[in-house]
Simulated assay, not measured.
Amino acid sequence: MVKLNKIYTRTGDDGTTGLVRGPRRSKADLRVEAFGTVDEANSFIGMARLHTTTMPKFDRVLARIQNDLFDLGSDLATPGEDPAGSPPSLRIVPAQAEWLEQQIDIYNEALKPLTSFVLPGGTQLAVALHLARTVARRAERLVVALVAVEPDINKDALIYLNRLSDLMFVMARVANANGESDVLWTPGKFRGGG
């Protein structure tokens, strides 16, 4: 159980932060960047939920993802193996990414195939989901970089982020009247001026 009594501790005033275990790290550390970016994606999903009042199923999906993203943040904030005799650390498990895949399949079923890339636009919900998608992709890139220097990273965390951005893309299209209101890229449209 998490218990937070005090919001400021002054322990981070030197530019470091504590992980679940191990020595304090710089707030610019790649691991801290990774779980901080996961938190940022979670915030954008929270913003997207402001626009789901008429879409309760969408809202439930996004609420579950927000909870999973806290699991993911905890996973990334817990380096190394569990010490002998300690309870297991909270880690993303394959079932969480598999659930995302199921949601992608459900929502993608009603969408027509794309004939061009989609520009972030359309409804407020679609734009918020595109923002969440791009931040999830950035988090994924950071975790890839982190794996290169700390290979003990849970690979399911990386898979989860990859699926998450895919789901945000599909849900953004659904939010745009099942893709009918998507804003499509027209390659070279303004190369001649105008």
Rank of each mutant, 00 (worst) to 15 (best):
I7D: 07
I7M: 04
T9V: 12
T9E: 02
R10I: 13
T11V: 15
D13W: 05
D14W: 03
D14R: 15
T17M: 11
G18Q: 14
G18L: 11
L19A: 14
V20Q: 13
G22A: 13
P23L: 09
R25A: 08
K27S: 06
D29F: 12
D29H: 15
D29T: 12
R31K: 10
R31L: 10
E33R: 08
A34L: 08
F35P: 01
F35H: 13
F35Y: 15
G36C: 05
D39M: 03
E40K: 14
N42F: 08
S43V: 14
S43T: 15
G46Y: 14
H51G: 03
T52I: 00
T53M: 06
T53I: 10
T54S: 14
T54E: 12
M55H: 12
M55I: 00
F58K: 02
F58H: 14
F58G: 02
D59T: 02
D59Y: 03
D59Q: 08
D59S: 15
V61M: 05
L62P: 06
A63Q: 14
A63C: 13
R64D: 11
R64C: 04
I65S: 04
Q66P: 03
N67V: 14
N67K: 10
N67C: 12
D68W: 00
L69D: 01
L69W: 00
L69G: 03
F70C: 10
S74K: 00
A77W: 03
A77G: 04
P79E: 05
P79D: 02
P83L: 09
G85E: 12
S86A: 15
P87H: 12
P88N: 08
P88G: 02
R91T: 00
I92Q: 01
V93S: 04
A95V: 08
A95T: 12
Q96H: 09
Q96R: 06
L100S: 05
E101P: 00
E101N: 08
Q102V: 12
L111G: 00
L111C: 01
K112H: 04
P113H: 05
L114R: 02
F117M: 13
F117T: 11
V118G: 04
V118N: 05
V118Q: 07
G121Q: 10
T123K: 06
A126K: 01
L129I: 10
A132H: 13
T134P: 08
T134W: 01
T134H: 09
T134S: 15
T134M: 11
R137M: 10
R137I: 07
R138E: 12
A139F: 11
R141F: 03
R141G: 10
L142F: 14
V143P: 03
